[in-house]
Structures are given as C-alpha cells and as structure tokens.
Amino acid sequence: MLETPALQRNATLPAPLDTRYQVETPEGIDLPLRPAGLMPRAIAFTIDLGIRGLVLGFFFLVLAFFGELGLGLGSILLFVVSWWYMVLFEVLNQGRSPGKQIMGLRVVQDDGRPIGWSASLIRNLLRFVDMLPFGYTFGAICCLQHPAFKRLGDLAAGTLVVYREQPVKRPALPMASPTRTPFTLTLQEQRAVLGFAERQAELSQARVDELAAILAVPLNVQVPNATAELNGIARGLLGPT
C-alpha cells in the first residue's frame, strides 16, 4: 500500500510541491498567496495571548479597588477581550492582530479578499473547537495536515492566514556595461540572470564563476569572462536606472 505506483511513461508528472496558493481572478490573473504554517502562527498567537494577559492583568488590578462594580466591569472586560480582541483587530486592521502584525501575517478570505465580519466571527468562535481538548490539540493537528495550513475555524469561515507582501528593497547590481543577449530569454530566464547579478554579494566567488560557466558556451565567451558577460546582460535587462 505504501508503494507509490510506477508512473506511466507518458503520464504527466505531479506538480512539484510549493508553498504558494494560486487564486485566479475573473480576469484570468493568478494571485499567488503564501499561506502561513503552524510555526509563525503559533508565535503570533503567543504574542497576542501575552498582550491580552497584560491588558487584563492591568485592568483587573485597577478594578480591584472598586469592589462589586469592579468585578462587574472586569467580567465585561474579560468578555470583550477574549471574544472580540481578534475579531475587531482582524476586521478593522486589514486582517492583522498585533501578533500577526509583528510576524508579518494577515487573514484573508480564500479568494484573497479582505476578511469581513461574518468570516472573522466564525473563525474566532470556532477557535474554541480548535482548542479542544486542551491547548489547541485539534487546531494544531488540522493545521499540520492541511495543504493550506488551515485550522478548523479557517475551514469553517473560508479564510486563510497568509504572509503579507513586504516592500522590496532595490537590489544593488554589480557594475558592468550593459550588453544584449545573443539569444532570446524567457521571462523566467531573465529573472534568473537578474537574480544571478543581484545575489552575487551573497554567493562565494567560486560559486559565482561556477554558475556563470554553465552559460559560457551558449554565450560564446571564455569561462573566466562569463560572469562579467552575465552581469552585463543583467544590466541590459534592467535598463537605465
């Protein structure tokens, strides 16, 4: 049973595993979302838990001086914080509670739209199912076994926790005089050449030369000059800056 069936010779290969989640808009545009797994979400939750604990602790200390009234107000506060903290932050702060904000996460609908009141309420009410029987056992197991890392509340509400897109810094390309490729490059190949130039600072010089040597023959240059040639092509692809 555990043996994977041998692939037919002309069977299409299964798509390689990736952490991207494609959403297709009606216009036919693919929006790649990156669902976030258990680890960053656990840390985000811990941060939120800490913040809630601090807030509640502070107010309880203050309210302790007010006797019966303080007890009543404290109960109301407890209700609001434990049930509405996540909902209010998610709906009013673009799907980001403070913990998620720190971890670079946000909650969206399955199709990438911002989360609304109903979805947020469902997702956070079912948090108590995820917590069963103790300490998020069901939620953790579900999150680890779901391909888009959803816990039960996410499944019910149709929501997704994704990584926010972070602003990109302008990469520094090594200086070279721009040249043109002797052959046409596909978009992916252009990106690879640009990536080669951009990430050169992180790579060792030997590795850079090794990578460039792969393309020495098609580029019609000597192996030692291949790096400079590729940098020139990258400059050419980048255009005037």
Partner: peptide
Amino acid sequence: EAWDIELVFRRLR
C-alpha cells in the same frame, strides 16, 4: 549556492 539559478541556467543551456 543559488540552486534555483543553477536550475534555470542548466535548462537554458
């Protein structure tokens, strides 16, 4: 080691 770049370069070659 820029594996992704190596992959694309090899395919290109």
